[in-house]
């Protein structure tokens, strides 16, 4: 191991940039960039949670956006019913996501491979239709969150800078947690199941139980992202659960590099900045983005972190 590798240097640079961003925004008076990066940080959190099951666990969930919606609707519905405290909203958002993950995971993990991809996709789509059918909470049109979660004055979510740092702290917390999980005995079992489920089972590990726990942890983390996202946009609608959003999250993970700790963060930053950049050039940005994805799949193995890793080895 070299003392300073390219991949570590670039990661550190990006993270430092994220930490110092509000300073730049204040000095330059560019408020838009802070709003943009709040979104990026939240979606990076969602992508990091997906990386836990996809990159380390080998479970290709194509329905991860469902948790964004569940977390968001937990905040939105409670706010509408007069429960404004974040100390209630956030735990409920996490618990609801965990419960959904438990049920969906228990069913989906009966299958594997491409079935698993399709099943998670279909269940997320079901959640989308259920949200569209919630006439009391806006149905198709979505639900406006008139008041952001209230943390008894400890932290003010209406302040752009404070909210940004809250999101960033959540992101770092989740990445730290994932790092601890991945290097724990539990994490090693889950990674072992990815490489060879039969062998692990023969050793005596209850494969499905380990995978289900991992699936639930990941879903709960993504529920946190959902609760933050609803606060960020002051709005939650079925659209956050739409399957293209799940696809976006997958793209972020793969673009960053599957199974790399900071991969999803890099992926989210690059993907969303690219989207922003392309949409400023042309209204038809997806016309470029689509084929670009195809090229990344065909030629860019291992994503950004893989590329940086190759630079390390020279």
């Amino acid at each position: 191991m070299k003392a300073l590798s390219v991949s570590k240097a670039v990661t550190a640079l990006v993270l430092a940039g994220l930490v110092l961003l509000p300073l730049y925004s204040q000095l330059s008076g560019n408020i838009f960039i802070l709003t943009l990066f709040t979104r990026i940080v939240i979606l990076a959190l969602a992508a990091a949670s997906l990386n836990l099951i996809m990159g380390y666990g080998g479970m290709m969930s194509f329905g991860h956006a469902a948790y964004l919606g569940i977390g968001g609707y937990a905040v939105g519905i409670l706010a509408q019913e007069g429960v404004g405290s974040g100390f209630i909203q956030f735990p409920v958002a996490l618990a609801a996501s965990a419960l959904y993950a438990l049920v969906i995971g228990a069913l989906s993990l009966r299958t594997r491979g491409v079935y698993f991809i399709m099943i998670t996709l279909a269940f997320a789509q079901m959640a989308y239709y259920v949200a569209s059918g919630l006439a009391r909470y806006g149905g198709d049109d979505g639900l406006t969150v008139y008041k952001r979660s209230d943390f008894f004055g400890l932290i003010d979510l209406s302040s752009r800078v404070q909210f940004y740092y809250l999101c960033l702290a959540c992101l770092f917390g989740v990445v730290f947690l994932i790092w601890r999980i991945v290097n724990s005995r539990f994490g090693l079992v889950v990674q072992g199941l990815r490489s060879n489920e039969q062998r692990m089972q023969a050793i005596g590990f209850p494969a499905k139980r380990y995978q289900l726990v991992c699936f639930v942890i990941s879903g709960t983390m993504c529920g946190l992202a959902g609760a933050l996202l609803a606060n960020n946009t002051d709005f939650v609608s079925p659209a956050v659960m739409y399957w293209t959003r799940s696809g976006d999250l997958m793209v972020m993970v793969i673009l960053g590099g599957m199974g790399a700790l900071f991969g999803p963060v890099m992926g989210a930053v690059v993907y969303l900045l690219l989207e922003e950049f392309l949409s400023q050039i042309t209204e038809y940005w997806a016309l470029i983005m689509g084929p670009l994805l195809l090229l990344i799949v065909l030629f860019g193995r291992g994503g950004i972190m893989g590329l940086l890793g190759r630079a390390d080895r020279g």
């Binding site: 996809m54 290709m60 194509f62 491979g113 491409v114 991809i117 293209t244 696809g247 997958m250 793209v251 793969i254 997806a286 016309l287 983005m289 689509g290 084929p291 670009l292 994805l293 195809l294 990344i296 799949v297 065909l298």
Partner: peptide, 14 residues
């Protein structure tokens, strides 16, 4: 399969 999903997802956007 993941590569398929990603690449064809790009095609949908396109």
């Amino acid at each position: 399969h993941l590569d398929h999903v990603l690449a064809t997802f790009g095609l949908i956007l396109f």
